[in-house]
Design a protein around this nucleic acid. Sequence first.
RNA 1: CGGGGAGUAGCGCAGCGGUAGCGCACCUGCUUUGGGAGCAGGAGGUCGCGGGUUCAAAUCCCGUCUCCCCGACCA
Length: 469
Amino acid sequence: MAKAPVLTPRGDDFPRWYQDVVAKAELADNGPVRGTMVIRPYAYAIWERMQAELDRRIKATGAENAYFPLFIPESYLRREAEHVEGFSPELAVVTHGGGKELEEPVVVRPTSETVINSYFAKWVQSYRDLPLLINQWANVVRWELRPRLFLRTTEFLWQEGHTAHATEAEAAAFAERILGEVYEDFMVEVLAIPVLTGRKTARERFAGASNTLTCEAMMGDGKALQMGTSHELGQNFARAFDITFSDETGSQEHVWQTSWGVSTRMVGGLIMCHGDDAGLRLPPALAPTQVVVVLVRAEDGAGEAAATLRDELVAAGVRTSLDDRLGTSFGRRSVEWELKGVPLRVEVGPRELADGVVTLVERHRGTKTAVALAEVVDRVGSSLIEGQRHLLAEATRLREERTVEVATLEEALDAASSGFARLPWAVVGEEGERRLAERGLTVRCLVRADGAGIAATEEDLVAVVARAY
RNA sequence: CGGGGAGUAGCGCAGCGGUAGCGCACCUGCUUUGGGAGCAGGAGGUCGCGGGUUCAAAUCCCGUCUCCCCGACCA
């Protein structure tokens, strides 16, 4: 007798499937205030793994962590014209404090360019103080009318980097370096999500930036998700906040700046890129638990064998947990671990133990293999590596299958309804972007036709058009 | 803000004038345990809120609040 599916099948109703995964894998709940999110322990563990991997890469660029306040004087936001214009519709503003109306309202940070730069102005005096490379891990608030857990919430967690440089070229190079060495490397190597790196059009650019670079991924339904951005701010904020330094010749110059961020939205991207009808599928490099040793039944020394195996795997450096909840049925436990996307299950029970083997179950393929006890640690190691590769290859193949080259805007309108459409940027233009927007499509990014690196000029660019989250 | 729906147990819903219900989840016990266990028992509710009509309101009327879905911005 077939049970009802655990989740709404992905192909039936993708948004519903997404919500089911978030609920059943115990990732998050809606908060009491509309648009807010409670991140449950399992999703928070995933976020902590993301933080650890990113933080290491960020520090490798020379950036240091610091922390700036949640509250920002409203007047600070106004100092940069485009910035305030971009953010004012989604600001949360505090008008009362200590039981009294405040003389100047404070905003809850939607991003920290303004506060951080007001301190950069104090800290930067000389070219010897540059580059100044600061990162912070923080929560930010952007009031959202149409929230979706992880993808678009009123409050979210992120990392925001802010840097100041002596020259435009150095700032531009740093923004590219973050995009490539930190974000793209992390997304491809750890999340196993292939991303396109490119430039945003003026229409899609960050409010206050002179250039925005982006990592764009394709989700399981063919829609695009912006996974991270890195901005060149030019001297816009340096002028607004008077961040100047004396160069080697003693003349006063404004600094050139960057800012860059990735957020808990990546958790949503992870779900939608790798998830299947059985739930989440976590890439081994990211998974908080890489292997769960499942004790099927405790008879005939199986309990001891399972505990020993867990210890051996831990000793081998594998993130391992033991599931010996014998009061819960084996089937239910299997379903739970599949929902949570743990890459490997090692099932230990008396029946197979009698033959000196255990069952290795690979989440990424769904395969089950009998493995001799003595070989388990080795097999787990190679299977984790293979699983990581498999997820990246599968996601890459799916993206390629759903990407088409087109020559006209009309063709793009049609093709981008189910994936990515690539066409010359010269064919689109700002007028074309407006027409795409009418049909719910956007230019996700501009890439070089030859695929080599990030494009610096407007010439010979290819626009990638898609529906987006 | 414009259009369309819905508020009843933790979740999903039925009931639409006459004792507050169902499925899942939860608790207890027994039997189970190799792919969401079975049986028995149990707990859980100002039916969004305020007013009105009525012998009697979850149900009818008025008001109000909230939430969800579809159209313009965003990590």
